[in-house]
């Protein structure tokens, strides 16, 4: 399931995770988000950027509970909770947000 960004094809696996992480761009993120039926606003971007920073530092996409705990630590408990995260990303923050962030599926996520 590939994506098209302004005429360029970006390869993705059958679940929609891009296969070459270095091909990510903000434009691609918007395309993936549309595909996920998510209307990206500042709050979505905050989570996506957080995930990209986490991956940059640790080379893994965190499990949901780790993501929520880490967000709570850095952005406070208003954002670091299940309800907030699932409102932003109804099909799972780790799954959908990671996909939009151009990261692999979180380790241990089935």
């Amino acid at each position: 399931m590939d994506y098209d960004v302004n005429g360029t094809t970006i390869a993705a696996d059958e679940e929609g995770y891009i296969t070459n992480l270095s091909e990510w761009s903000k434009e691609l993120a918007d395309v993936i988000a549309v595909n996920e039926k998510i209307d990206m606003n500042e709050e979505h971007w905050e989570v996506v950027n957080f995930l990209r920073d986490y991956y940059e530092e640790y080379q893994i996409a965190p499990a949901v509970r780790v993501l929520i705990k880490s967000v709570k630590k850095t952005m406070g408990k208003e954002k670091g909770n299940n309800k907030y995260m699932y409102e932003l990303f109804p099909y799972g923050p780790a799954k959908q947000a990671c996909k939009i962030a151009g990261l692999p599926k979180p380790t241990g996520c089935v």
Binding site: Y58, Q59, I60, V66, K69, S70
Partner: peptide, 14 residues
Amino acid sequence: IKNFSPTYRALGDY
């Protein structure tokens, strides 16, 4: 090969 040494530093989060 992916350098996975930074991932050990995430273990505390887990």
